[in-house]
Lab assay of single mutants.
Amino acid sequence: DSWHDTVDGIELELHGADEELLKLAKELLKRGVSEEEVRRIIEELLK
């Protein structure tokens, strides 16, 4: 799946992010949310 590559990229960027955020990112990508949107959501949550 192409979203796996996206998640791997996000995981590299979010090496400090907790497991729950990564699960959320994967779930959003699986549901068709764009990579940009996922990054934006996670950045908001990390604030």
Rank of each mutant, 00 (worst) to 15 (best):
V38Y: 01
H15P: 15
D5G: 12
E11V: 15
E19I: 08
S34R: 05
E11R: 09
E44K: 04
R31K: 14
L45N: 01
L21R: 01
R39Q: 06
K23N: 11
I41K: 01
G16L: 11
T6R: 13
A25T: 03
V7D: 10
L22N: 04
I41E: 01
V33N: 03
I42N: 00
I41W: 05
R40S: 08
S34K: 08
K47E: 08
L46Q: 06
D1P: 09
E20L: 07
E36P: 07
E11P: 09
E19T: 09
D5L: 08
V38A: 02
E27Y: 04
A17Q: 09
K26M: 06
D8Y: 03
G32W: 01
K23Y: 07
I42Q: 00
E36H: 08
H15G: 12
A25N: 00
V7N: 11
E20R: 10
D5I: 06
K23H: 04
D8G: 13
K26F: 08
K26R: 12
E19C: 04
I41Y: 05
R40D: 03
V33D: 03
W3G: 10
D18P: 14
D18V: 09
S34C: 05
S34A: 10
K26W: 12
W3A: 11
L29Q: 02
L21G: 01
D1Q: 14
E44F: 06
D18K: 07
L45K: 04
V7K: 07
D8C: 04
L46P: 01
G9W: 15
L29Y: 03
R39H: 05
H4F: 12
V7L: 11
L46Y: 04
E43Y: 11
A25L: 05
E27N: 03
L28D: 00
G9A: 13
D1R: 00
D5S: 11
E37Q: 06
K23W: 10
L29T: 02
V7S: 10
W3I: 12
E27K: 05
L14E: 03
K30E: 15
E36R: 06
E13I: 11
K47A: 12
L24M: 07
V7T: 12
T6N: 12
L28I: 01
G9C: 06
R31T: 14
E37I: 08
E37A: 06
R39M: 09
E11C: 08
L28H: 01
L22E: 06
I41Q: 02
K30V: 08
R40N: 06
D8Q: 13
R31D: 11
E36Q: 11
I41C: 01
L24K: 03
K30W: 06
H15I: 14
G32I: 01
R31G: 14
L21T: 05
V33F: 15
L14V: 08
K26L: 13
H15D: 13
K26T: 06
L21W: 05
K26P: 00
S2G: 12
T6E: 13
E35K: 15
D8L: 15
G9Y: 13
D5N: 11
R39D: 02
L14H: 05
D18M: 11
E35S: 12
I10R: 03
V38P: 00
L22D: 04
E36C: 02
L22G: 03
D5E: 08
E27C: 08
K26G: 05
R39T: 05
H4N: 12
V38S: 00
W3C: 07
E35L: 15
R39Y: 11
L24V: 05
L29A: 02
E13G: 09
A25F: 04
E44L: 08
D8S: 14
D5P: 14
V33I: 07
L21A: 03
R39K: 10
V33A: 05
R31W: 11
R40F: 05
A25W: 04
K30Q: 10
E44H: 07
K47L: 12
E44N: 07
L28W: 03
V38K: 01
V7Y: 15
L46F: 05
L14M: 08
E11Y: 04
E19W: 08
E19P: 10
R31Y: 12
V38G: 01
G9M: 13
I10F: 14
D1W: 00
A17P: 04
D8A: 14
D18G: 13
K47G: 10
A25V: 12
L24Q: 02
A17F: 07
L45Y: 11
R40K: 12
I42K: 00
L46I: 15
E19G: 09
S34Q: 05
L46W: 06
G9Q: 06
G9I: 14
L29C: 07
L28F: 02
K30H: 10
L22W: 09
K47W: 10
D18L: 08
A17K: 09
S2V: 10
V7P: 12
L46H: 04
W3Y: 12
L29F: 02
K47T: 11
T6D: 12
R39N: 04
I42A: 01
K26N: 09
L21V: 09
V33H: 14
I42V: 07
K30Y: 08
E43D: 08
I41R: 02
L45V: 04
H4R: 08
K30I: 06
E44V: 07
K47Y: 07
L22C: 06
R40L: 08
E27R: 05
G9P: 12
R39A: 05
H15S: 11
I10D: 08
L14G: 04
L29P: 00
R40H: 08
S2E: 13
G16V: 09
G32D: 01
I42W: 01
V7M: 14
A17D: 06
K23Q: 13
E19D: 13
L45P: 00
K23M: 09
L14F: 15
L22S: 05
V38N: 00
E20V: 07
E44M: 06
I42T: 00
L12T: 05
S34G: 07
L21Q: 02
I42S: 00
L24T: 03
K23T: 06
E20I: 08
D8H: 14
G32T: 00
K30S: 15
L29M: 04
D18Q: 09
L24E: 01
E36S: 09
D8N: 14
D5Y: 03
E36I: 07
L46D: 01
E35Y: 15
E19Q: 08
I41N: 00
G32E: 01
E13M: 10
L22H: 06
E20F: 11
V33Q: 05
G16F: 10
T6F: 14
D1F: 03
L45W: 10
E20T: 12
V33W: 14
I10Y: 08
A25Q: 02
E43P: 00
E19A: 14
L29K: 04
E43F: 08
G32L: 01
K30A: 15
E19R: 07
E13K: 04
T6C: 04
H4A: 10
